[in-house]
Amino acid sequence: MRRILSSLTDGKGFDLLLVGITLIFLILLAGLPLVYNVLLSFQEVDMFNLAAFSRPWAGLDNYREIVSQPEFGLVMRNTGIFVFGSIAGQFAFGFALAIFFMAKFPFASTIRGLFLVSWVMPGLVVGAIWGWILAGDFGVLNAVLQGLGIIDETMFWKSDPALSIWAVTMANIWLGLAFNMMLLSVGLAAIPRDLYEAAELDGANGFQRFTTITVPMMRSTIGAVLALGLIYTLQQFDLFPAITEGGPANSSNVAQYWAWQWSFRIFDFAKGATVSVMMLAFVLIASAVYVWSTRAEVRG
């Protein structure tokens, strides 16, 4: 007994205790709901057996029905546009800004800090602001584009079915920009200066230094940023109710908003769970990429 107690205060027991608390927390708050969600997607759920645990087994019926919905293809296409458009935009602009702020100029770090505003703001607020920016008749975006002569007539970003998903994607790029820039800045700052000096003396010009030093040295950071980007983009919910509500006619509906609509608009919890389980598969792929990219940390 004394030995167990002393191992709790000094030895391995303490480590196990810390790990155990975390594990219990994770299992209770993340693991069980996840399993319950997966279970739900294989059951028949209606308003009467909602509180019960054992429900009629539905097998893959829910999945078949989801896939055969007329809007299924559109929602998947939109989700693809939203996810890859957001990640590409956030990453490209975030990387460019991160490199820009590595240059030493007055107030560089202050200005970089201000970019965090976009990250701190609640998604609903950002959605409302972008809702105004994107407004067809009085929106700033249209005014700027028309002023620059890029477009001639008013673009109805939120109500044109061909544009609505891009409108939300634009807002989401802005929202995730700061997060990408910060992570990439940290990665950039971790590359020793003398590598660039050595490369410069070895005859590499700016572009060659970027492709042969910066990018390979950032490999694990880039993998992490892209994987987290995928996860956060699939989690992005607030912008949809604030900007388009998935409309018009599902033209800007994505999987995560669709799942919510199934569960809390139509109260078909099984279908909502089914859509979210399908999304889980994508997140697992992203997690695998993340683990793979951070597997071999390249440090001198």
């Binding site: 003398d194 050595a198 042969t212 030093i213 490999r219 440090r299």
Partner: peptide, 10 residues
Amino acid sequence: VFQSYALYPH
């Protein structure tokens, strides 16, 4: 030749 050697780690 740098003090830290500045070898390309990758």
